[in-house]
Simulated scan of single mutants.
Amino acid sequence: MPQVPFFDGHNDALFRLSESQGADPHLLFLNGRLDGHIDLPRAREGKMVGGIFALYAPSKSGLDLNIFKGKSYDCPLPPEVPLADASRIMMRQIAILLRSVAASNGSVSLCRTVADIRDARQRGALAIVLHMEGAEAIDADLDMLDVLHAAGLRSIGPVWSRNNIFGHGVPMRFPSSPDAGAGLTDAGKRLVRACNDLRIMIDLSHLTERGFWDVARLTNAPLVATHSNVHDLSPSSRNLTRRQLDAIRDSDGIVGLNLATCFLRSDGQMDEDTSIEVVVQHVEALVEHLGETRVALGSDFDGAVVPKAIGSVAGSQAIFSALRAKGFDDGLIEKIAFSNWLRVLQQTIG
């Protein structure tokens, strides 16, 4: 069967590259690396034609992955990241991206609009939209927001799974409702309004349920969760309830399916020995609830344990093969793979 070109709603490749030792990180991205999930050669192999690449600053004390091996878990919220630290870390990640673009001979393109994405695809370049996962590098006065927008930032998740000046992150907790803390702060509400004005997409994936509804009341754009799954199938605090899915549907928004096994499995386990059938089940549930035009991919590559049958971006075609075997026709697969993201990006970033 022919390969399906796809656009991915979320990955953490820039963060992983920023932690690389030795060779220039941008060259590892362009020429290939032995670790992780995404680089340019593997993106081409898996037919990834574009994606939303995240900036991310880790807390000084990270998550203990052993917590995810129990039948239930409740990870304490990591400590907040100071503005200066987050700015330094994220500026390095932007530099890696810009150096990758400059050294790629036209093979990688930083895209600010949907027209840029379409142009990159026509040229055979990897189209990258820049995202910030946790807005710790932005000050309360939002001065840095304008600077980052000028540099190409087009998508923001106000929080990661920790608190900051803009709001409260949903904890990594299983089983749990996403109603697990407060919502946006006053600064967070100003951030949402400013992002609407600048045409920066707001990502709801790591917000508490109260934060989700705060954004829903404030925004004039479609509701977007770039990398989240169905709470009915996997009762993680990070997944979306029926009521949240209703709101996304009613706003003509989108959900990008997260390949992290702990957000796919009914037992919440972080285990690469997870059947791809579970991926299909979430896609089926999302399509049934949201409709065919509001479901896409948001892999979380380089930020999660994904099913072994996929492995990395190079194995992404296994998803589309599984959907085809389940009876999804080529038109619906193309929407999930590519055009649904472009529809929402057109409505948000322009």
Score class of each variant (00 low, 15 high):
I138G: 02
S155A: 14
R123H: 08
I128L: 15
F166A: 10
L153Y: 10
A127I: 08
L148E: 00
E133W: 09
G124P: 07
L148H: 07
W160N: 08
I165D: 11
V170L: 09
L130H: 04
A150E: 14
F166M: 03
S155I: 05
L148F: 15
V147E: 03
G169D: 05
I128F: 14
S161I: 00
H131S: 15
N164P: 12
H131V: 02
W160E: 05
V129S: 03
R123D: 03
N163L: 06
L145E: 10
A137S: 15
P158H: 00
I138D: 00
D139G: 06
D139S: 14
H131G: 05
V147N: 00
W160M: 06
R123C: 08
E136R: 00
S161G: 02
M132L: 15
V129I: 15
N163R: 14
E133R: 09
R154N: 03
H149R: 12
A151Q: 14
M144L: 11
G152P: 13
G134R: 03
D141V: 13
D141P: 07
N164R: 11
A125Y: 05
F166D: 11
N164W: 05
W160F: 12
V129F: 04
A140H: 01
G134E: 10
A137Q: 11
G152S: 12
R154I: 03
D139P: 09
V170E: 09
P158V: 01
A150C: 10
A137N: 10
A127S: 12
G152A: 11
I156W: 04
G124D: 10
H168T: 14
G134H: 08
V170G: 09
F166C: 07
W160H: 13
L142D: 03
A137F: 08
V170R: 05
N163T: 12
H149F: 14
D143M: 07
H149D: 04
G169P: 09
G157C: 10
H131W: 00
G152Y: 07
A150M: 13
A140E: 15
Q122I: 04
I138T: 02
V147F: 08
L130N: 04
H131P: 06
I128N: 12
G152V: 11
A140V: 15
D146S: 07
I138F: 04
G167N: 07
L126R: 02
I165V: 14
G157L: 04
V129H: 01
G167S: 09
D146W: 08
D141K: 15
E136K: 00
P171M: 03
L153K: 05
L148I: 06
L130Y: 10
G169C: 10
Q122Y: 13
P171V: 02
V147T: 09
S155P: 10
D139E: 13
N163H: 14
I165T: 13
A150S: 12
L130D: 13
A150Y: 12
A151C: 14
R162L: 08
L130C: 07
Q122F: 04
A151N: 06
H131M: 11
N163M: 06
V159P: 07
E136W: 00
S161Q: 00
N164V: 06
D146L: 06
A151G: 00
D146T: 06
I128D: 11
A125H: 02
H131Q: 14
M132P: 11
M144W: 09
H149E: 05
L126G: 02
